[in-house]
């Protein structure tokens, strides 16, 4: 895009102050300058293109009498009232509906050509969705490196202070009381106390895994915003709370014979 185009400094400063990226601010300031210029002097470009749109390129799909409210001798765009203009846009959209992308860029085969209406300086060509991006190096790599070092430091310090458990030699004839699974299966073990093993031990976890895998195909709500997906968020949160409660119960509230204990009274039977 050509440099040295006029920009609206005030809009630019305002956007920068509001934390927009330089690129976005520049584009908007440029557009604002063009808008201002066009408002000040409804220049000949617009006039001529309006005439061209009315005479030179008759829109095939235009409803008959679509131009009536404007009248034939409409001078320039600036002379239209806001209401008239809105009506005109409505008509254009209704006529150009099969355009597909709805932006009126219909191309040669399209029903209507609106591109010439805008002076070249005001056209911003955006390919794909405009996104606010930064370079992976150094921005992302640097923060990833910090995260990596933090984890490593934590691991080394924690491992120097806390030893992994190593009990007596395995003895298949002498079962400890209670015998507990690793902590990530303690929710499952807790569930086994309430239901038949075939339900709690296999069927339920199986259904859960299948449900998780199928989730994106079951939840067809396209929105990513939390306020639009309250049901999904509620169900998942309940699932997490349910599972977390079971795991914590199985870890800290179960003692010898897997009977209920209060950890602050009877002690903790839990190994990592």
């Amino acid at each position: 895009m050509a440099e040295g185009q006029p920009i609206d400094q005030q809009v630019y400063d305002d956007l920068i102050a509001r934390g927009k990226s330089e690129r976005v601010a520049l584009a908007k300031a440029r557009a604002a300058a063009v808008r201002k210029q066009r408002q000040a002097e409804p220049d000949e470009t617009t006039t001529s293109t309006t005439e061209r749109a009315q005479g030179g390129v008759p829109a095939a799909s235009e409803p008959a009498g679509g131009r009536d409210p404007e009248g034939a001798g409409q001078p320039a765009r600036g002379a239209l009232t806001a209401e008239q203009r809105r009506e005109r846009v409505q008509q254009a959209l209704a006529g150009g509906g099969q355009d597909g992308n709805g932006n009126g860029h219909g191309g040669p085969g399209g029903p209507r050509r609106q591109m010439p209406l805008a002076p070249p300086s005001g056209v911003q060509q955006i390919k794909g969705k405009q996104e606010d991006k930064v370079y992976t190096w150094p921005h992302l790599i640097a923060s990833e490196f910090v995260a990596l070092l933090t984890i490593l430091a934590f691991l080394v310090v924690f491992s120097s202070l806390v030893d992994a458990p190593l009990q007596e030699l395995a003895n298949p004839t002498e079962s400890p009381n209670p015998a507990k699974a690793p902590w990530y299966f303690l929710g499952l073990q807790e569930l086994l106390l309430y239901f038949h093993p075939m339900v709690a031990g296999v069927t339920l976890p199986g259904v859960m895994a299948a449900g998780l895998i199928a989730l994106p195909y079951l939840d067809r709500n396209p929105s990513q915003r939390p306020e639009n997906r309250k049901t999904a968020v509620t169900i998942y949160t309940l699932f997490m709370v349910f599972w977390g409660t079971l795991t914590i119960t199985g870890s800290f509230f179960r003692g010898p014979g897997l009977n209920w204990v209060w950890p602050w009274v009877d002690g903790i039977w839990f190994n990592l």
């Binding site: 015998a179 699974a181 086994l192």
Partner: peptide
């Protein structure tokens, strides 16, 4: 060790309930 053995016994027993 005892911890390992019996955790796996419990886990394997759960898997043994597969229909």
């Amino acid at each position: 060790d005892q911890l390992a053995l019996w955790a796996i016994v419990v886990g394997a027993d759960i898997a043994g309930f597969t229909p």
